[in-house]
Design a protein around this nucleic acid. Structure first.
Lengths: 165, 165
DNA sequence: TTCGATGCAAATAGTTTGCATTCTA
DNA sequence: TAGAATGCAAACTATTTGCATCGAA
């Protein structure tokens, strides 16, 4: 039903996708799965987006950057790709999950006052994780649920400001 | 704003509730709100339960320990009580939120392999929070979304065990 | 020419909202 | 007795599932 727009210059325009598509194709074959157009599209979306994206954003075609697709299939494919280790999902607060490619992991910090989001490579919080394993015995990660709190700006503000919301 | 807090048993049947009910009544009056039966019931559930409880568990009457009530009203009252600072909610993973009384805060650690849950007073992870504010400038808390990772048992297990699920 | 994957619709889980009725202050 | 709160139903958001059809290998 929507075959035509998928194949054009994937190589010229999406270098990173080309690579991931290869990796994906390999993973697919290794598991006896098919690399369908819809599947390729989800991968393309994950690699086109700057950060973690919502399923409905993928289905919506990322603001016209990609063709739209069926939401249920998007979810099914995200699950498949997660199982294959090509994609993972994170939470940046309440609301829908966000999906991103598996790669260098980042931790996300969400300000509960101004909602600003910061992120940084996981390694930078290694000391904090060590402090936690030392006290609790748990080897924790900060990269699935968000770290919430006050951003530098909001934690520095006055009591009056803080009371205003 | 949060006056009468932790008095030991004042009355025979619901010692902790009696106190919280007083605090609640005060907070209600201070905001021109009414302390209705349904509202009292939600508070009673929060103080009866051992840990954080789901809205539908409250509506269900905590396994017969309390009368059942309407789920929508439970949600409305939880929201009200949260606004008044008597209740707060946490997440212990995917799935429904859990509600607990405001009081000494605890952080929750969830094992992503065996699903076991541990908790400890927030203060015990102060060093970790300091490490994070030092690197990021964010003053984070670990008590709203769970800390996930591997519990002592699961992180110590062999590759073979780990591969089995 | 299979059977895995799709697309649509319907189901499910968690939570919120509209509204006529009830009950607290 | 005014209007806050209830209870029921319906809406809503996020996600999953059933199923007939389609298409990649």
């Amino acid at each position: 039903m929507t075959p035509a727009h998928l194949h054009p210059q994937a190589h010229a325009h999406s270098p990173r996708l080309a690579t991931s598509a290869d990796a994906a194709a390999a993973a697919m074959r290794a598991h006896g799965l098919r690399l369908s157009a819809a599947r390729r599209l989800v991968l393309e979306a994950i690699y086109t987006a700057e950060g973690p994206v919502k399923a409905d954003e993928i289905a919506g075609g990322l603001d016209g950057r990609l063709p739209r697709s069926d939401l249920a299939s998007v979810y099914r494919n995200l699950e498949t790709l997660e199982r294959l280790g090509l994609v993972r999902h994170v939470h940046l607060g309440h609301g829908p999950g966000r999906y991103e490619r598996v790669g260098p992991r980042r931790d996300y910090l969400v300000c509960e006052r101004c909602q600003s989001i910061a992120s940084l490579p996981c390694e930078q919080l290694e000391a904090a994780r060590r402090a936690i394993v030392q006290v609790t015995g748990f080897s924790v990660r900060f990269d699935h649920f968000p770290l919430t709190g006050l951003c530098p700006g909001c934690s520095g503000s006055s009591e009056v400001d803080r009371a205003s919301r």
